[in-house]
Simulated assay, not measured.
Amino acid sequence: MLLAIPVPAEADASMYWRRRFRGAADQVWSVRAFAAHLLADFEALDDVLLVLDELAVNALRHTRSGQAGGHFTIEIRRDVAGVTVHVIDEGGPGEPRVGDIVELAESGRGLLTVDALATAWSWKGDSRGRTLRATFAERA
């Protein structure tokens, strides 16, 4: 007989998940479903999902990830401090930047949304590939 013995979680223990997605618009829904399943009990889940949506769409629109045969990768880390997400794309021209709000514009607000919802965000990389990172603090 096999017995399961509960073991208390360590204060600094973290969970980590990584998944690669095809560079196609229908994959954005899959990104959201992936994160929603893993972070179902995280208080700021809606913020995380919206930010992942924006970052995945940006990867598809502004990098080689959205071209034929492209892909992007999502990494999610959860620990006692909160959640960190990474969107890793295949790079492209230009650099991620928060744009000016243009009234009635249908796009261009993605990184403004990320900036408003995430505790912090950053990016690194170049035209060969970039990683955008957003963190979300655990709410007390």
Rank of each mutant, 00 (worst) to 15 (best):
S14R: 10
R61L: 15
D100C: 13
W123T: 01
V85N: 12
A25F: 07
S30P: 00
Q27W: 05
Q67F: 08
V28Q: 04
W121E: 07
V51Q: 06
Q27K: 00
R133A: 14
E106S: 15
L117F: 10
A137P: 11
W17D: 02
A44E: 04
H71Q: 02
T84E: 13
A40E: 04
L111T: 02
W29E: 10
E103V: 09
D12G: 13
D26Q: 09
D89A: 04
R22L: 10
F136K: 14
V51S: 00
R139V: 11
A105M: 00
Q27A: 04
P6C: 03
N58L: 12
V48P: 07
A25S: 04
S30K: 15
V98E: 13
L52Q: 08
G129S: 02
V102S: 05
D41V: 02
T73F: 11
K124H: 01
D41Q: 05
G66V: 10
V51F: 05
D26R: 06
A140Y: 02
G99Q: 15
A134R: 01
I76S: 08
F21T: 14
D47C: 01
G23K: 02
Y16C: 05
E103M: 08
W121T: 02
A44N: 09
R20H: 11
L3D: 10
A59T: 10
L45M: 01
L60P: 04
Q27M: 03
E90Y: 09
R109T: 08
H86L: 04
H62I: 12
A25T: 08
S107W: 10
E138L: 11
S14F: 13
V51I: 03
A35Y: 05
A116W: 07
A134C: 02
L55K: 11
V7H: 10
T131E: 09
R130C: 03
H62S: 12
V57P: 06
L52D: 03
A44I: 05
V102D: 11
V31S: 03
A4C: 04
R19T: 10
G110N: 04
T119W: 01
E106C: 14
F72A: 06
R133D: 12
V57C: 13
V80W: 01
T119D: 03
G94S: 08
E43K: 06
